[in-house]
Design a protein around this nucleic acid. Structure first.
Lengths: 173, 173
DNA sequence: GCGCCACGGTACGCTTCGGACCATGTCAGC
DNA sequence: GCTGACATGGTCCGAAGCGTACCGTGGCGC
């Protein structure tokens, strides 16, 4: 989509797009093109002076492989990976105050993210060509709204004393 | 929460709970207790006959560490890890038919999951003691509803011809 | 008495991860 | 014209995560 790019270019592009819902450790972005090049899906041009940038270009084979992959059905269900959710799952072992703080922090975090996303929508929403890349932003927003509502509910319930701590773990099987 | 358990016990328990939103390759569930035991957070009792089960019990130190962790604030934002979303992000490179199929499959997948979750709610919702563990199920459901709505929207837009393919990639920088 | 399947676990190679580290330009402010 | 901060562009590496293949045990139905 971007044309020939260096890993660093990708890193920045990702930071403003897919990075919001799929984390890429930057070291990966240097290792992966190397592999793809080995597989014949990318060509490299390495500068021989200065910063020695490596500019990768997709090959015909790479283009074909990408399109094949896109046409392939998705079997995996999405995975959430939410530390806060894990902690809430173990709420019985925590103090109600901890749960309350967890909920408060989560609401704040999701609100911040919602503000970011809504700002992006306002800024780039109308622009021709870019808007088809904005579709996924809506999913992100939907998820954020749902999460915010959920944690608000948790907060209310904590306030009503519906979470209680279990001081000792069970020792019997 | 469960008391002394074997990795296998955990594997099954996880399959019916956290496993829905956080994947655990079962090999991990044998390696991790070993590590935790090394750190003094678990005790082992290994059977010396038959299946040689390893039954792990949490220690005082482990219990304390767990509670500390639960009390610690969560810094990381959740991560979605949705292959379908990635593919949709690259919709410009795919055929509209592929996008349509993607949306259809996703709607089906999310509906299946919603049915499972709703069934769980009906079955275990009222039960004393278990219901505090059901909280996270609500978040799961919220996410599923949001995702289903989103993909329905995508489907409608594909039908209206709002997605078009870009046959050739840009070659200029 | 035997074959199947749930149980319970190990081994191993590959990938992913993230933090530490390094070197090159650029530009603002003195 | 020097310097220090910061963006650029990248490598290295140990640790953790992943998934598949594989192995033995025991209960139960036929």
């Amino acid at each position: 989509m971007r044309g020939p790019s260096t890993p660093y270019d990708l890193k920045r592009a990702i930071g403003r797009s897919v990075g919001y819902f799929w984390n890429f450790p930057h070291a990966q972005l240097y290792a992966e093109p190397k592999r793809l090049q080995g597989a014949g899906f990318l060509d490299v041009h390495e500068e021989d002076t200065g910063r020695r940038r490596k500019i990768y270009t997709i090959t015909e084979a790479g283009d074909a492989a990408l399109r094949d992959w896109l046409a392939e059905p998705v079997k995996e269900h999405f995975e959430l990976r939410d530390i806060a959710e894990i902690k809430l799952f173990f709420n019985e072992l925590a103090e109600p105050d901890d749960v309350a703080r967890l909920a408060r922090d989560q609401i704040e975090q999701h609100e911040r993210r919602i503000a970011e996303y809504e700002e992006m929508q306002r800024r780039y929403g109308g622009i021709e060509g870019v808007s088809s890349r904005m579709v996924t932003l809506e999913l992100g927003l939907g998820m954020e709204y749902a999460a915010r509502e959920f944690w608000r509910g948790v907060q209310e319930r904590v306030e009503r004393g519906e979470f209680s701590s279990m001081k000792r773990r069970p020792t019997a099987r």
